[in-house]
């Protein structure tokens, strides 16, 4: 693992890490076929509405909130496009409420918004999905704690070693400076989690556009002959 990019397991300002993050040293192992293979999910994992979160939860109308388009490239560390790669997406609604039944935040559920979706990259590694900009919401980590607006993303990439679960943030969010989950990332790597507003992705009279490139771990050496 590239620990200059990824958060350490225990980061005290994010309190849940204290009892859940492993504390014994990780055991470094040689890569075998077990690490260099991984589950393959592509276009056949996607339903027709999966990449449009403004449509896939509709019951009797349009979801409320600001429509956005999110697009970008998925590449590896050698800048090689990652084609036909699944991205799983989940997020809060415009009011900052998750549909999840354990979310007790006193903000409205939107009957027309599920907040889950999927998309797949094309041959150039590009992806695109449409959604509603998620709201900020309070959480119990410390007094007056609020999560910045964010979208959760999950990718497998080409092998078990490239598994990535992350969160995409929005530019100019004042809550980022106060968020221990964002700050758990090594300082020099944090900016990689912030999307950029893109007027050329924005569709006139319809939706704002954001760009967010995702960089997966690159291939290591060939499997060790063990």
């Amino acid at each position: 693992m590239d620990w200059s990019s990824h958060p350490a397991h225990v980061y005290r300002d994010y309190k849940s890490t204290v009892l859940r993050g492993p504390t014994k040293p990780l055991v470094a192992i040689d890569h075998t076929l077990s690490e260099l293979t991984g589950p393959v999910y592509g276009q056949d994992s996607i339903g027709p509405l999966d990449a449009d979160l403004t449509k896939n939860g509709q019951r009797n109308g349009e979801p409320l909130g600001e429509r956005i388009i999110v697009t970008g490239r998925v590449v590896d560390e050698n800048d090689r496009p990652q084609a036909n790669t699944l991205i799983e997406i989940w997020q809060a609604n415009a009011a900052g409420r998750y549909i999840h039944e354990i979310d007790q935040h006193d903000a409205p559920i939107d009957p027309n918004f599920l907040g889950a979706g999927r998309c797949v990259t094309d041959a150039a590694g590009r992806y695109r999905y449409m959604t509603i900009k998620p709201g900020a919401y309070p959480w119990g980590n410390h007094h007056n704690a609020w999560r910045p607006n964010h979208i959760h993303l999950s990718l497998f990439g080409p092998s078990f070693t490239s598994r990535l679960v992350t969160q995409m943030y929005f530019p100019g969010d004042p809550l980022l400076e106060l968020d221990p989950i964002f700050h758990g990332v090594p300082e020099g790597a944090r900016d990689r989690l912030i999307s950029s507003f893109a007027i050329d992705v924005t569709e006139p009279q319809y939706a704002l556009g954001y760009e967010f490139d995702i960089v997966l771990r690159g291939p290591n050496a060939t499997p060790l002959e063990i």
Binding site: W90, I99, D103, H152, V185
Partner: peptide, 26 residues
Amino acid sequence: SPRQTPSQTVGPFFAYGLAPEQYGYR
């Protein structure tokens, strides 16, 4: 070369995105 996108927690509310049928989501 681009650097890796950092990991973030899956959080408490992953179920309807990553395991929806198990948890009864549509």
